[in-house]
Design a protein around this nucleic acid. Structure first.
Lengths: 232, 232
DNA sequence: TGCATTTTATTTGTCGACAAGAAAAATACA
DNA sequence: TGTATTTTTCTTGTCGACAAATAAAATGCA
């Protein structure tokens, strides 16, 4: 894998963001497994910079819960807390509802173009059966709806949940080569229509149903796994 | 004001947390005004440590939105966004509801002791007319209810909102020497009772009413200020 | 061999120094 | 006197080095 080569000229201050963005994506795409140790020196060599900016990127990632750092001892990629998945699902469903609802209420015409853009990206990824892109664009689609709702508090929590969801869905599609249902695309289209029509209750209802459908699928998988674990 | 003196012996790793906690409190208590510049060198001198741990504390504070940092140029205490207070109130009311509701559903007996502790602290602060302590213990009271609900996603958003609320309430009680209503203490007691009885709907209802009462009070003040601003 | 203790190794936390960027001050020029 | 340009100043971003803390390895001892 060819890394960051040929350009030792980096603009002052861009290093942190670069390391942050890259590590974040690698974590969310499960390119680095949960629980993996993270070595500052190694990263410093890889990105050809000193430990200081690396450290700052790590502090930020820790702030978002993507990595965990034991005092004086290693820092590692956060594990997925399977024991408490239900708290994740609770929060996710509520945020799906709230953000979709607010989007129907507060969106501006130009927001719809952005949302439709991600909607099409998602449909394309599904047609291409590219699960990694599907997962990322699905998250981007819902995040753009949240942005249209214009409540930064909800948006930031929802983004965090969608991020965590990327890791979980990754697992989901890794273990089972499920059929990616066309249904999700249709539901997205329906949600867009409700937002455009400013039908708040319908947006809420669709958001809730959409979220619960996804949650139900994932839960079905994990309950199967749970039984296996117990059986062994 | 005598500062951190006489103990140059600090444990390795404790410096960051100390600076973080102290700055956080000073920001939330409005001891440092919104918009004030923050100088790393000055802080380094004040705490008698190098800029590196100071910097880490600042990065964390920035992650929570308490300070804002302009690239290559100063970093300052975040301003309170009066234009979009309604988004804050929306989020606050919803989180009051959700966390109170979850506490009624999921709390354990030992949680109630903690909650009652903050409840009494709050009542004592009110009796003493100590608004600063009132505001802080009120936030701690509701945060402890959220903890009893055991959903870390909701808890962390709610904590952030309560923090921001501390700054806003500070303004509120600074500009007007309002009567601190006994009513809030009674409402807190009613909320505790509903949680203990595991009456989810009642907890939700009380949480919502309590939140809306506070919001209404603050909005009344700010709408007065708004009119003044327009008049000038 | 099995366990306690010392030694080594590895990784983090902190430091002081230096250079880049941007604002403020000083200078030049009309 | 007023504006454009250069110089200075001040703050941040980055670096390499060192010391503390912990884990792993080595040693001693029964």
């Amino acid at each position: 894998m060819t890394e960051t080569d040929s350009l030792p000229e980096r603009k002052r201050g861009s290093g942190v963001k670069m390391v942050y963005d890259l590590l974040r994506d690698e974590i969310l795409d499960l390119k680095i497994a949960p629980g993996s140790p993270i070595d500052e020196v190694q990263l410093a060599e890889r990105f050809k910079m000193s430990r200081t900016p690396i450290r700052e990127a790590l502090v930020r990632l820790a702030g978002e819960g993507l990595i965990e750092t034991l005092p004086n001892r290693s820092t590692m990629v956060s594990n997925i807390d399977f024991m408490n998945l239900h708290t994740f699902f609770d929060a996710l469903v509520l945020m799906y509802r709230v953000t979709t609802r607010l989007a129907a209420q507060s969106h501006r015409p130009e927001d719809l173009a952005v949302i439709r853009g991600f909607h099409e990206d998602y449909a394309a990824a599904l047609a291409a059966r590219d699960s990694l892109t599907m997962i990322a664009t699905n998250a981007a689609f819902h995040a753009s709806i949240a942005e249209a709702g214009r409540n930064p508090y909800f948006t930031s929590l929802f983004r965090r949940l969608l991020d965590e969801g990327r890791r979980i869905l990754q697992l989901y599609y890794q273990s089972y080569e499920e059929q990616f249902p066309q249904r999700f695309v249709d539901e997205h289209a329906a949600i867009i229509a409700a937002i455009e029509a400013r039908d708040i209750d319908e947006a809420d209802r669709l958001g809730k149903a959409h979220a619960e459908a996804i949650v139900a699928q994932v839960q079905k998988l994990f309950s199967r796994n749970d039984r296996l674990d117990i059986a062994l």
